[in-house]
């Protein structure tokens, strides 16, 4: 830990955020949708450390609950994309030939679409709920992990211990799951942490455009969009969610950097 400050600080930030999200009802001083009759757009003060928004809701409480949305969207979306990437990438890498050609050309086609607009198009058809957002982000971001895993498997499957496993009577599925994937998982882990940061950013952007998590459920992205109209008079509603996004992304990037060092 001491000789890897990136990993230390990254984990510190993300663990703190996760704890905040997990214990949101215990930590947050107010209910995120309760309105304080004493005032709208209150600047940070003792009662509201981060101020209130245009409807008089406590910004700190809304951001604490927003952390739940942002982190879970990030983690689940990336979970889906990594799972898809693992399955498709390892099949492509292991079986080669036609399977490889089909899967990787499909990935290339998916990569040709600008992801953001692909997501916008899908959201226009399905209802923009938090679950749909997770699934859509996951389904449109598996190509990176798949390519990465395919590359790893391509070189790993030529290694001698794979031949030894085959000589011991292991089936294809067994070789892939038990011997290839665990050896390929290092770079994928780095990719995943970066992916989480990307997914959080994507959710914020979507929410900012009004196509993400729908109000009154607070997410960092839709707090930001609500701040747009009052930017001139209430800076805190813009600055604090923005900072939260920044710090989270930084945290995940630090972890990725730290992992990269460990894996070499």
């Amino acid at each position: 830990m001491k000789d890897n400050p990136y990993l230390f600080w990254g984990l510190a930030i993300i663990l703190m955020l996760s704890a905040t999200a997990l214990f949101a009802p215990l930590i947050s001083p107010f209910d995120p949708s309760s309105i304080d009759s004493q005032g709208l757009l209150m600047a940070p003060c003792a009662r509201h450390p981060l101020g209130t928004d245009g409807l008089g809701r406590d910004l700190l409480s809304r951001m604490i609950y927003g952390a739940r949305i942002s982190l879970s969207v990030g983690i689940i979306a990336v979970g889906i994309s990594i799972l898809l990437g693992l399955i498709l990438g390892s099949c492509a890498g292991f079986y080669g030939r036609i399977a490889d050609a089909l899967i990787m050309r499909f990935a290339d086609i998916m990569l040709c679409f600008p992801t953001f607009f692909l997501i916008l198009a899908v959201i226009a058809v399905v209802e923009p709920s938090i679950y749909n957002i997770m699934i859509v982000i996951g389904l449109t971001s598996w190509m990176g992990p798949a390519r990465l895993i395919r590359g790893e498997i391509l070189s790993l499957k030529e290694r001698e211990f794979i031949q030894a496993e085959r000589a011991l009577g292991a089936s294809d599925a067994r070789i892939i799951i038990r011997h290839l994937v665990p050896n390929a998982v290092g770079p994928v882990l780095v990719n995943a942490t970066l992916g989480i940061a990307g997914a959080i950013l994507l959710e914020s952007s979507l929410s900012f455009l009004g196509l993400g998590v729908q109000p009154p459920v607070p997410s960092w992205g839709n707090i930001l969009i609500e701040s747009k109209s009052t930017l001139g008079i209430a800076w805190w509603i813009t600055v604090f969610p923005g900072l939260a996004i920044l710090i989270t992304i930084l945290g995940f990037n630090f972890i990725a950097e730290g992992l990269k060092k460990i894996i070499g």
Partner: peptide, 8 residues
């Protein structure tokens, strides 16, 4: 050494 799986 190279015929044994390094991560197990």
């Amino acid at each position: 050494a190279s015929f044994l799986n390094p991560v197990l």
